[in-house]
Nucleic acid binder design. Sequence first.
DNA 1: TCCATCTAGATAGATCGCTAACTGTTAGCT
DNA 2: AGCTAACAGTTAGCGATCTATCTAGATGGA
Lengths: 147, 147
Amino acid sequence: MSDFESTKLGVLRTLIALTRKVRTLFDARTGEYGLTEARARLLLHLSKSGPLTQSELAEAMEVERPTMARLIDGMETSGMVRRDIHPGDRRQRHIHLTDAAEGQVQAVLKLSEQVRADVLAGISEEDLAITHKVLLQMFDNVVKAGH
Amino acid sequence: MSDFESTKLGVLRTLIALTRKVRTLFDARTGEYGLTEARARLLLHLSKSGPLTQSELAEAMEVERPTMARLIDGMETSGMVRRDIHPGDRRQRHIHLTDAAEGQVQAVLKLSEQVRADVLAGISEEDLAITHKVLLQMFDNVVKAGH
DNA sequence: TCCATCTAGATAGATCGCTAACTGTTAGCT
DNA sequence: AGCTAACAGTTAGCGATCTATCTAGATGGA
């Protein structure tokens, strides 16, 4: 088997294993804030975007709506977000960060940048750019293949 | 923000989203065999390696032992694998594919190669090699950071 | 106006991943 | 022989993801 063939065999497997490891690293680091990787990402996203509906958040973070609903459930229970019913359309819930959560944003941002730096250590700008391009291409391929 | 900075921000996010999408694509394709991405991977692994213990399988597929145990539970229930107690060491269970599962290997192999081909479509050998190298580096970084 | 359709969100059920803690078995050392 | 440590596997509990389905509310055409 050529090197190319064995790379093809391994790259998806590496992708999957790496994603799991990144998540567990994130979970370990953010555990003291009552956060997980998914929660931290939502926290940071909301702090940048401002209040959005659940559907908008789901689309922006590329998860399905029930996934987002459950994520919000958990963060609502631990007092990090608030569901506000939109006055003009009672179907919509606008998701706000609570003051407590706003206060954590800086710390989580720092922590998440640290994780990112750890993960990307020793990788050249060129290689990283190529990798990102390739991952985006794969993503596009999967979306197309899904039809 | 430089391009390098924005790539750093996006690449991990793309990685996570891509992994989810690849898994769901796999699940959709293999659904008719009563398989999922994880089950298909175990099926193919066992067909190549021959019978192994649960711990060996867990290590080879880079998941924890309870994860492997439950995966085997499900496949045992649907009649794809068999747990054989090792005569010399009653702690060990040697996991065998059943005849029914052996018969599916070729079809699943084909299917999994098709998914792989779909995902990797249009990506050059050079870029893929770089990507794999970068992912492995990231994996190594995460393992080191986890201590 | 009224009924059909679309949209937003919630709920149910499944899979897969993790850690922590438990049982049973083996091995090793005194 | 017996105690301790290590190992294999299981169980319990939680988080995140998906699809399928349900309810409530909004919209639009007959």
